[in-house]
Simulated scan of single mutants.
Amino acid sequence: MEFLLITGMSGAGKSQAMKVMEDMNYYCMDNLPPALLAKFAELCYKSRKDIDKVAVVVDIRSGEFFEHLFKGLQELNDGGMTHKILFLDAADNVLVKRYKELRRPHPLNPEGSIIEGIKKERELLENVKGRADYIIDTSNLTLSMLKEEMSNIFLEGKGSRNISLSVISFGFKHGTLLDGDLIFDVRFIPNPFYIQELREYTGEDENVRDYVFKWPQTNIFISKVIDMLEFLIPHYTREGKTQLIVGIGCTGGVHRSVAIANEIADILETNGHRVAVSHRDYRLK
């Protein structure tokens, strides 16, 4: 029987992840007390319903989280039940924003600062994150992107502890990408905005892409960025980094950065990397 433990930061998307696992025909249980892990696995194994895939969410909502979690996992091993751990994470500023949007207090600091609660939670989860088989940073993932990432891991077998890459286009006039690890400025490329027949399109459209890529400097730039990333990725991975956010910025975040971000993401994916691409500032017509 396949047994998956889902855990991670509050607000990082564990509930959504559990729904995705249900869609993949996993038998799911939310907020299972860690002390009951082995007993629950045994019940599933002996069930007459032929349960062969189980996913449980365990997190800090159980007050005695670390006192029993690793003991529970050891009991699984002792019973011959192999398991995997999926850890969901997100940047602090993203978690704060999500809490504010939902108007919820942090469970570890319900009467005080959200950021202080997040800090306490990170300290508590440090050891279990270190033991995780899969780590997904949801900071820049939509629900559909999360589904795709989990499908890659659990249906297509592409998952690993390797670093995941997020390529994000943005416009400098709307502010720089605050959580970007590497920021590239593509404003040196002629701007399609000043071409009347291209202004109302985006970098997703073929006519804009053709204009952006007709300039030799565009292709040279992309080649050099790919070379740099392929050099850096294994070094970041060895240092324990789980996500690399690459920002591609132009003036408005509509034309050049969108086309180039898509191209870089496509090349990285072809090279075998886990890649998510998103566009912060453009809106479809």
Score class of each variant (00 low, 15 high):
I6R: 06
Q16M: 08
D23H: 07
D23C: 02
Y26S: 07
D30E: 09
A38V: 08
K39Q: 09
F40E: 03
A41N: 11
A41I: 10
C44A: 15
Y45L: 11
A55P: 09
V57Q: 11
V57D: 12
S62D: 15
F65W: 13
F66R: 15
H68G: 07
G72Q: 03
L73G: 11
L76E: 03
N77L: 13
H83D: 06
K84R: 11
F87E: 08
L88N: 04
A91M: 05
V96G: 04
K97A: 08
R103E: 02
P110M: 02
G117N: 01
E126N: 15
R131P: 06
I135V: 13
I136W: 05
D137C: 06
S139D: 00
L143N: 05
S144P: 00
M145G: 09
L146S: 00
E148C: 03
E149C: 12
L155R: 07
E156M: 12
G157D: 08
K158C: 12
S160P: 07
F170P: 13
F170Y: 15
L178M: 07
D179V: 04
D181E: 05
F184P: 00
D185R: 03
V186E: 07
V186I: 12
R187T: 09
F188P: 00
P190G: 06
E197V: 04
R199Q: 08
E200W: 14
E206L: 15
W215A: 05
W215V: 07
T218R: 09
N219F: 06
S223W: 00
I233M: 03
H235M: 12
L244R: 01
G249C: 08
T251Q: 10
S257N: 08
D266W: 02
L268I: 00
E269G: 13
H273K: 15
H273M: 13
V275E: 00
V277R: 00
V277Q: 02
R283I: 14
